[in-house]
Computed example of a mutant assay.
Amino acid sequence: MAIDIRARITFEGKQPLSDSAAGRAASFFIQDPGNPSVDPRILTNSARAQEAAGYDSSLVWQFGASPDVWSVTSWALSATDQLRVVAAHRPGVQSPTAAARTLATLDRLSGGRQQIHIIQGRTDIDIARDGDFLEHDSRYRRAAEYVTILKKELFATEPFDFDGEFYRVSGAMSGVQPSQTPHPTIHAAGNSDAGLDFVTDHADVWAVGALGLAEHEKQIQRVRTLAASKDRTLGFWSGAFNVILGDTDEQAWDFTRQISQEVIAFLERSGDKIADWEQRVAGSARAHTPARTIPAEAFDLDDDSRYRLEGPLYTRLSALTGHGPSLVGTPDSIADYLADYYLIGIDVITLGGIPELFDENGDELLDPHHRQLRKELVAQLRARAGRIDRERNAEVAA
């Protein structure tokens, strides 16, 4: 498959940590926790800005207190012409037949731009908000039944029955079918044995849980082998990257240091209440992970060695805030680094952070110059992937 450069839809405003470029950028990584809301201006502007920047697709996330994923997805699709939208979706929230009809309807209305990402929920606390108390492996068994029924419902021309451990349907059939064949792309995550069994049986694209190029390659080889044993082929998605750009690598790293200083200052303003802040985040509706301990060394900006892993890959902001790894550099240097991911089989690459900065009025917090750098990064990565595709095709033709 051709490269898919992905963003994440945002629908709530950020609160800048200070009135500076670094303070605005830092608001992506940390701010006071609160209940997720949804603003039509932010949602519309987010989707349109991502399409204008050249992104191929965007993810709409789902958690136990977040706005309805299908409503957000449909709004983003209606605001754009080409952007594909991937709805994170957790079995157990909706019946599989109803989800299939929703998926098919949105795909039909958008001209084949709807996709789905099957998730299991990151914490028991979060999924319990929706009355889901299944244990880990049982959730994957349920998901297997769920996707089986969903696929049947998408294209069944005759009524069908299903009688399983978790679901039973009688005479199921949909009056709407998706535009895409054989079906809208199904993404899925999971690193456990149960998760990988589910992914290699039912998904089209696996969200790789790894850090660094070598670990990505190792995980891809493992899952490719498992999928091949079932006569299946998967695509691969690296979905955690958040990008910090500059005109030179030195400028980008200096900007990253300023962002880190803003984050640290935010935490230190709480004094001895940092642990309380972590607990509030863990207990808030916005929280996606349980409370964690911030390592003391993450506050020491004089020592970057433990956090600069390879090339532009940087993890200090991950240690401070729990977000995924950062990529720091120019559009060229980051595109060069990510081209190696495409070479080993990563088809879908998320370039996050920079497309998710909007204030409460719906205006982008990213300044015009950094917006141009964002557009250049997308273009540079696409150009490198295109060269790789042409070289591969030439090798096959030879």
Rank of each mutant, 00 (worst) to 15 (best):
I3M: 09
I5M: 02
A7I: 06
A7M: 00
I9F: 04
F11W: 00
P16I: 06
L17N: 08
L17P: 08
S18A: 15
R24Q: 11
I30G: 07
N35I: 02
V38M: 13
R41V: 11
L43G: 06
Q50L: 01
A53N: 09
A53F: 03
G54V: 03
D56H: 12
S58M: 01
V60R: 01
W61I: 13
F63L: 11
P67N: 06
Q82W: 02
Q82I: 00
Q82D: 14
V86R: 02
H89I: 10
A98E: 13
A100K: 06
L103F: 15
A104N: 10
D107Y: 04
S110W: 13
G112K: 05
R113A: 01
R113Q: 11
Q114S: 10
G121D: 05
I125Q: 14
D126T: 08
D132F: 03
Y140F: 14
T148A: 07
I149N: 03
E153A: 15
P159L: 01
F160Q: 15
D163Q: 14
R168K: 14
A172Y: 11
A172W: 13
V176L: 12
P184R: 04
A188G: 15
G190W: 08
G195R: 00
W206R: 03
L211E: 10
K218R: 11
L226N: 01
K230H: 04
D231I: 00
I244N: 10
G246H: 00
A252V: 03
D254M: 00
F255A: 07
Q261S: 15
F266G: 10
L267M: 14
E268I: 08
D272M: 09
D276I: 14
S284G: 12
A285Q: 11
R286K: 05
A296T: 13
F299C: 02
L301G: 14
D302A: 15
Y307M: 08
Y314A: 11
L317E: 01
L320A: 02
L327I: 02
V328M: 05
I334S: 02
L338K: 07
Y341G: 06
Y342L: 08
L343G: 11
I344T: 11
I349A: 04
T350A: 04
G352Q: 06
E356K: 04
D359E: 08
N361E: 14
L365V: 03
K375Y: 01
V378Q: 05
G386N: 15
R390M: 12
N393P: 03
